[in-house]
Design a protein around this nucleic acid. Structure first.
Lengths: 208, 208
DNA sequence: CCGCCCGTCAACCATCTGGTTAAATCAAAC
DNA sequence: GTTTGATTTAACCAGATGGTTGACGGGCGG
């Protein structure tokens, strides 16, 4: 089961190139070159381009789920859970840009892989991070900690805020041209997003 | 200048297929077939696949900008501007899914086209919708109508909330499986998003 | 030392892909 | 009715692409 060194190199190269050029745009030859190996090895370890893509996609999704699974469970309040979720999500995107790009790309294309894997996950691991966060929101609504919002929409809003700077990086960089400051921008986003969402969600403080 | 009927059909088919399969995945033959025309016509009207793609992309971006330009100018308060922006954005995505997908795809891939067009737009039309909304936010901060938030981050958050359900539709549909209810879900999102953002942005009401 | 098998490779193959071309068609101008 | 120019078409082409194959090699059990 332990993937050989060669297999891993091919796999990594595939992830990189699939993320960069999409499934159709990534060439098998280019993947082999990137890994510094012979193209035939790709077919030796993964039979076809389709199967290679599926393997890489599945890995990306699994990696994604694992990334902030533990963090979430330690939260004691909704505010803390929200902060952990945002931090985990943004940190994941920052360090696993390729995996994230692959996942978003597959979503955007409306491929069937997303649905498949998500359904399967829902069945085998009913406490995966999305579900977990969803229930955290519902609980916070029930306890009156936050306004009575729709949990699905809210989760979508949280996720979108984390993901979007990476999705729309070229656009974001027109607003924030200093290239070197990208990291700082991403880091600042954690705080901005938490503030925005926490203010937006918490129960109204009766005023004037 | 008026594009011939043939040219328009090719153009539309190209938009559809580029959006569906990406630049690399869309085949010239398939585009011609979709338009019910001969493949050579594609090269007759647009010299190459690259130029066809650029033309389609430019059109999508222009269409996108035009879609909610007017609406924004009529707003009298920040709240109204926010509502109009959200409505316009979501409505655009709903009715021009292909154009939206193309734009997001290009962003995700980090292509140079996004930067080019946006820079050019910034120069020729300094009051394009994004800039306009940006300044609306800044004004609302200055007037104390909303908290002193970073305008760039805030705009990004607004846009992301509008766009994301369309980007991640397969994922969203796992949460909301009833296929027929997609339209209702999108419509409900306008209200949810406005509430979330408006609560999240408005100046703190001093309380206990 | 021998045979065996896994891993590796260069060369090869059928098909597909973007792009070209020369002939055919058509509409308006003369 | 013929000329002229834009439009349309089928056939074609060179190179790329996913995938295959047969040979080579080296480590390992015997």
């Amino acid at each position: 089961m332990a993937p050989s060194d060669t297999e891993q190199q091919l796999f990594d190269a595939a992830l990189t190139l699939f993320a960069r050029h999409g499934k159709a745009g990534a060439r098998m030859q280019a993947i082999a070159d990137e890994a510094g190996l012979n193209k035939a090895m790709l077919h030796y370890y993964f039979r076809s381009k389709d199967q290679l893509y599926e393997a890489v996609f599945g890995y990306a999704m699994q990696q994604f789920m694992a990334s902030f699974d533990n963090a979430l469970r330690t939260a004691s309040s909704f505010g803390e859970a929200l902060r952990l979720f945002i931090d985990g999500y943004i940190t994941f995107c920052k360090h696993h840009t390729d995996a994230m790009r692959l996942l978003v790309n597959e979503n955007l294309r409306g491929g069937s892989l997303v649905g498949q894997h998500l359904q399967q996950l829902k069945a085998t691991a009913p406490d995966a991070p999305p579900q977990l966060m969803l229930r955290t929101i519902e609980r916070a609504v029930a306890s009156g900690e936050i306004r009575p919002v729709d949990a699905d929409h809210t989760l979508l809003s949280i996720v979108s805020g984390c993901l979007f700077p990476f999705i729309a990086r070229p656009t974001a960089e027109v607003l924030h041209p200093e290239a070197a400051q990208w990291d700082a921008f991403v880091e600042a986003r954690k705080q901005h997003l938490f503030d925005l969402l926490y203010h937006g969600l918490r129960t109204d403080t009766p005023s004037a």
